[in-house]
Design a protein around this nucleic acid. Structure first.
Length: 559
RNA sequence: UGCCCGAUAGUGUAACGGUAGCACAAGAGACUCUGAAUCUCUUUGUCAUGGUUCAAAUCCAUGUCGGGCAGCCA
């Protein structure tokens, strides 16, 4: 699919394990989302890593596994969206889609095994008591008074927990490890809790649910995962991951947990909790709002899976917790779109231009190149007539020194058409520019005899009589600061009030009449756009701006 | 004042004891019927201090700074 990614410390480990035949030469990774939210660009990094490593190695496989061990926060809406997003990103799990809940019965019997080994016990401490007994990072914990129950008693109690004899929270099953461990996760962590809550897949079959630390390592083991790749915050869980598998009669060798740094992107937030907050509080229009860093949002905005994959390859994989510049994502996008998007002309903020020396009834069909980066993309015809629209930004009555565009008495080239000269400015009663009276040089037609005459600038235009009306939504970054959720900040205070600008009355060239949302366009000199898949209709077009073009003029002006 | 992890240009990432590279960003220029793309050039870096070594970004020690860990969340 893509050129092989440069190696990284995780791929090095995988390569080494293949070389030493640790897992019989197999590579099985997994992407294990909890179905409690939509996937975002950070998940895409993990997806590209896990599926990428599987693809790069002979016979490698990547499982999609839903980590659905907490019925109180999970929902099928999310399992559907997650599958759609992974597939859209271009990855295929084949028949290897699983749910941790598929393993509840096995997990239960492993827990029984742990009890029989004297390595787990049923504890009656309440939540608050357990916190008190746990100690603190620098203070050792205290042993639970229920820690020394007999194996038989534990077996009986655990069976009765499953049978629903106890209230929610009344008891837990805990690993018996070491209450004085410097690693808090080793201080007799809970393995099972009672939750009389309907699970989206197992219904009411269970009222005890396994905890992440217990379910995850065993799910990996059951699926014969070779490399269990997760983010840095699970680093301190690794001793527990290993401990659980070491106690039990599971197949060897055990999967190896490897941690890498999650993606942080500038000018956005990446936690599911905060994204959910934006959705629930109506600060965005939904999980797929084009301003969201969710896969669904990026897709709706017009990102391509290729651009996202290239981005994920470029950022690399390390254990350093950094902040990636969103400009790198935008660069990956432009790079991809530049190669594949056909060019069209659209005027977002129109000014009417009357060409005084062009016959009233005349219409010419001018030939335009669809994509200068792709010789197979062909050409199309664009109508030209006496009244056209040009961009407000392309005219200034009193131009500053480096302004190359149209101004009174000055000439510009109309893309694919004639050189245009502004002869007068018509203003409305407010003194604003209402209309431009211009003339063309009839000998300057593109491809014509004197077409080679140079002018400083070329601008885009749309014939008024043939223009399509459209709404265009201009998106900008959701936040005004690089790290809206830096410590001590309330990220919502930094929302960019200009993150969405809706323009109506935009004028498009007629070839856009049947724009398919699947097709991305470059509106020349403006950016990349695509029809909104939800809101655009044949008779009321709506376009989303995916990303602007780089703009040296804007930079020149100090933005 | 506990434990774990990390630190290379502005940002992200390579260099696996032997010439500190790459990409993005930024700046300058060329080209241009997109102020785009493309091309050329430029600026900026090994957290600190010791040690080992012929040789240290790399190994060791100490310190500094940053991140993570005290859900019956994942």
């Amino acid at each position: 699919m893509e050129p092989a990614a440069a190696s990284d410390f995780i791929r090095d480990i995988v390569t080494e394990d293949i070389k030493t035949n640790k897992h019989g030469g197999k590579v099985i990774t997994r992407f294990p989302p909890e179905p409690n939210g939509y996937l975002h660009i950070g998940h895409a990094k993990s997806i590209c890593l896990n599926f990428g490593i599987a693809q790069e190695n002979q016979g490698g496989i990547c499982h999609l596994r839903f980590d659905d061990t907490n019925p109180t926060r999970e929902d099928v809406e999310y399992v559907d969206s997650i599958q759609e997003d992974v597939r859209w990103l271009g990855f295929d799990w084949g028949n290897n889609m699983f749910y941790a809940s598929d393993y509840f019965e096995k997990l239960y019997y492993y827990a029984v095994e742990l009890i029989k080994l004297g390595k787990a016990y049923v504890c009656d401490l309440s939540g608050e008591e357990m916190i008190a007994y746990r100690g603190a990072p620098s203070i050792p914990g205290k042993e639970s008074p229920y820690r020394n129950r007999s194996v038989d008693e534990n077996l009986d109690l655990f069976a009765r927990m499953r049978a629903g004899e106890f209230a929610d929270g009344a008891k837990t099953l805990r690993a018996l490890i070491d209450m004085t461990s410097p690693n808090i996760h080793m201080r007799d962590p809970a393995l099972y809790r009672i939750r009389k809550f309907e699970h989206h897949r197992t219904g009411n079959a269970w009222c005890i649910y396994p905890m992440y630390d217990y379910a995850h390592c065993l799910s990996d083991s059951i699926e014969r995962i070779t490399h269990s790749i997760c983010t840095l915050e699970f680093e301190v869980h690794r001793p527990l991951y290993d401990w659980i598998l070491e106690q039990l009669s599971v197949p060897r060798p055990n999967p190896r947990q490897i941690e890498f740094a999650r993606l942080n992107l500038s000018y956005t937030v990446m936690s599911k909790r905060k994204l959910l907050q934006l959705v629930q509080e109506g600060l965005v229009v939904g999980w797929d709002d084009p301003r969201m860093p969710t896969v669904a949002g990026l897709r709706r905005r017009g990102f391509t899976p290729e651009a996202i994959r290239h981005f994920c390859r470029r950022i690399g994989v390390t254990k350093f917790n950094g902040l990636t510049d969103v400009a790198l994502l935008e660069h990956s996008l432009r790079e991809d779109l530049n190669k594949r998007a056909n060019r069209v002309m659209a005027v977002l903020r129109p000014i009417k231009v009357v060409i005084e020396n062009y016959p009233e009834s005349q219409v010419e069909q001018l030939e335009a190149v669809n994509n200068p980066e792709d010789s197979t993309a062909g050409t199309r015809k664009i109508p030209f007539s006496r009244v056209i629209y040009i961009e407000q930004d392309d005219f200034m009555e009193v131009p500053p020194k480096k302004f190359f565009r149209l101004s009174p008495g000055n000439e510009v080239r109309l893309r694919y058409a004639y050189i245009l000269k502004c002869v007068s400015v018509v203003k409305n009663e407010l003194g604003q520019v209402a209309e431009l009276r211009c003339t063309i040089d009839p000998n300057s037609k593109s491809g014509g005899t004197t077409a080679g005459r140079k002018v400083k600038a070329t601008i885009h235009w749309v014939s008024a009589a043939h223009a399509l009306n459209s709404e265009v939504r201009l998106y900008d970054r959701l936040f005004t600061v690089e790290q809206p959720d830096a410590e001590g900040r309330d990220f919502k205070e930094f929302m960019n009030s200009k993150s969405l600008e809706v323009l109506t009355g935009c004028k498009l060239e007629p070839s856009l009449a049947n724009a398919n949302p699947e097709v991305r366009y470059q509106f020349e000199r403006l950016g990349y756009f695509r029809a909104d898949p939800k809101d655009s209709k044949a008779n009321s077009l709506v376009f989303n701006r995916t990303v602007t073009l780089r703009d040296a003029w804007a930079k020149e002006q100090g933005h």
